[in-house]
């Protein structure tokens, strides 16, 4: 059974950590400075998420967008959940084809380390949901 009930929950929790990232003292300024449009195509439930990393503030929304994505990732929403909990090895996922990526590798590699300081924030975000399903 998928962890997220619907795309609203994907937006609330995974979108939520990206929104919170904007105000993270360490990762927020670096993400905004990246000047990238990140598009993530989650499946199960199907959710298209856009993370626009630009100054003065990051924008996060779900649904289609006419903008051009610099980086596009595709994965199951459950994989996204595991990643943000710090329980998923992205390198292994890429090798297995569980995660697919389009866009300049160089830019993707620079973004990945910025996510680690956000893992505790994500765990806080999903704590209530975890408690309800426990």
């Amino acid at each position: 059974m998928a962890y997220f009930a619907d795309s609203n929950e994907v937006d609330k929790y995974i979108g939520g950590v990206f929104r919170a990232a904007n105000d993270h003292a360490e990762s927020g300024p670096k993400m905004r400075a990246a000047g990238l449009n990140l598009r993530v195509l989650y499946t199960d439930p199907d959710t298209e998420m856009w993370v626009k990393m630009h100054e003065p503030a990051m924008e996060v929304h779900t649904g289609a967008d006419d903008d051009k994505a610099d980086i596009t990732l595709m994965m199951r929403a459950d994989t996204g959940d595991k990643f943000w909990r710090g329980d998923y090895n992205l390198a292994v996922g890429l090798a297995k084809g569980e995660v697919k990526a389009k866009g300049p590798v160089n830019k993707i590699l620079k973004l990945v380390p910025l996510t680690k300081p956000l893992f505790p924030m994500y765990r806080d975000l999903v704590a209530d949901k975890d408690a309800q399903s426990a």
Partner: peptide
């Protein structure tokens, strides 16, 4: 596709 390198952090496995 899943290149891992010792001592280079989350990005490399």
């Amino acid at each position: 596709l899943g290149t891992m390198i010792f001592g280079l952090g989350l990005t490399f496995g």
